[in-house]
Amino acid sequence: MRCGGERPTRCSPDDRRPRYDQRVTSPPETRVSPHTSADAPHVNPDVPSIAALASVIGGVAAIAAVASFVDTTSMGMALPAQVTLLTAIPLLAMVGVQVLTDRQAPRALASLCGLVAVGGTWVAVFTIARLLDLPLSPLLLWPPVCVGIAVALSYGFVWLASTSVLGATVAVASISFVAAGAPWTTVFQRWEPLLMTAVAWLVLSQRLAPLGPTWVLMVRRTALALVMVALLVLSGLEGTSLLPYAPTTTLLLYQAMAVLGLTGLALWQRRLGDRAGLRLVGAAFVIFLVGRYVDWRTAVVPAWAFFLLVALASAWMARRAARVHGRPR
């Protein structure tokens, strides 16, 4: 039996043992399929996580090498040669992915090549636009996002799809600012459109079942991470909101929303049985609490009362969860 393209000698019985995520989200027949991930250590049990990590680090380093090479070496060339070079690098990397897949090489290597293909596309599109003196626009985000999704879906590279979902979120969120006549980079200063788009991804992730459970998990966790980052920024930093209220009022509104939203997300993740998602929400909650401890702003509720309330609520939830499962967590 082959393990998703990994060499047969690397497949131990432990590697094939289905993990929690797959137990709760996928039927056994989908565990090793063309659409399972090659580069997601939490999702695919078939690739050792060290190989996945090495492929990500190698891919990022290779992209940096490409960008640096183009920046320093190609400037002595004429524009056609520069454009040809910039176009050739991602295309060669794409061919590399195909060749490695055909030869059934370790999928971590193919994943590295895929990362270079997509990263090279980002570098190429933005560098060519700069060389041609075209203004930076959010439209430039779409080609690398589409290439990333195409490569990821074709070869099952989940991390690549995850970065493309991030890029697509920024591209979609920036539309609202462009439509309002504001520069698209305002998307990083006012976070509501990013939050809304991430929530839309969360809802959409439930509709991606035909692509396979791995993709549902990937989109959901990426969107989850985005929603939590947006909530943390909006509830912790002044001047990051579009709401027409005083800064303190806006912060308090978002702090209340963060408590409710994070609790809701935690309950949702628990119902779905996604333990990694639950940990993600837990981490966000801890960051939120640390932020409130450092920067307590409301006089309505004293800080000690708030934190005591959170502690009691957590204790109640822990007790209830232990009772439901019949053992302490």
Partner: peptide, 19 residues
């Protein structure tokens, strides 16, 4: 599978040059 991604990229480069 490769062709979809490659064509998308080439289309983007041609669009930039055309623009």
């Amino acid at each position: 599978q490769l062709i979809v991604a490659a064509l998308t990229f080439l289309l983007a480069v041609v669009s930039l040059l055309g623009t």
